[in-house]
């Protein structure tokens, strides 16, 4: 498979595992607002480059960097510079305990 330029990124779904290591709930469905252009959408919709040397997630609207994540052996570095706020759904406990 030849990777074209437009295929050079994945999307925020790929961050589900790395972010779940840090947060108590799934973050890919969280709605974030871009600090640069104001576009709002789930983290799953971001353009994601990585995993090495680290993850970089850009806004699908204006391409500004919204999030960077580097995982070292003893720590993770999480940079959320481009996100004004996040709306994180917190399901009822019964649902959270399921899949």
């Amino acid at each position: 498979m030849t990777a074209s330029i437009e295929d050079a990124y994945q999307d925020g779904n790929a961050l589900a595992g790395p972010l779940r290591e840090i947060f108590a709930v799934d973050m890919t469905a969280a709605e974030g607002r871009c600090a640069s252009c104001g576009l709002t959408g789930p983290l799953a919709s971001l353009r994601v480059y990585g995993p090495e040397p680290g993850w970089v997630a850009r806004c699908p609207g204006c391409e500004e960097v919204l999030l960077r994540l580097v995982r070292g052996p003893q720590a993770a570095w999480l940079d959320l510079r481009g996100i004004v706020n996040l709306r994180i759904s917190l399901p009822a406990e019964a649902e959270a305990a399921g899949a």
């Binding site: 779904n13 589900a16 709930v25 799934d26 890919t28 469905a29 799953a44």
Partner: peptide, 9 residues
């Protein structure tokens, strides 16, 4: 293997 992960798709 770790998971399952993902809550959007």
């Amino acid at each position: 293997i770790r998971g399952p992960v993902g809550g959007w798709f």
